[in-house]
Amino acid sequence: MPQNAILPALSYFRVSTVRHSAMGADCGVVSARFQVDVWADSSSSARAVAAQVRSALQRWSTTSGTVVQDIFYLNETNLYDPQVKIHPTACDFEVHYEE
């Protein structure tokens, strides 16, 4: 997150990527775990934004462009940083897509 960002805000990063193998070749399906972090100055705001994130991504799929077969919402962790008085919420997703 940049310094002094306007809250609430989101950041995300890829945690891990698994490519499934068959004999002789990979099957082309990738399972990637992403973490979306919600940054808010109150717990209620963090939960509300996290709910929007979940609503937008959970079970989303597309066959347009990169084929995303499905997205599963794995985990949600509510935290608090007392030094900067921010309520981060970490949302973990597993994205199954084709490459």
């Binding site: 499934h20 193998s21 068959a22 004999m23 002789g24 099957c27």
Partner: peptide
Amino acid sequence: YRDQKLWFGGYDLTGTMNALG
């Protein structure tokens, strides 16, 4: 063990299987 071939009838199952015994 990474490239075992399995032909079943008229089909090559190599690219869809990942364990064989």
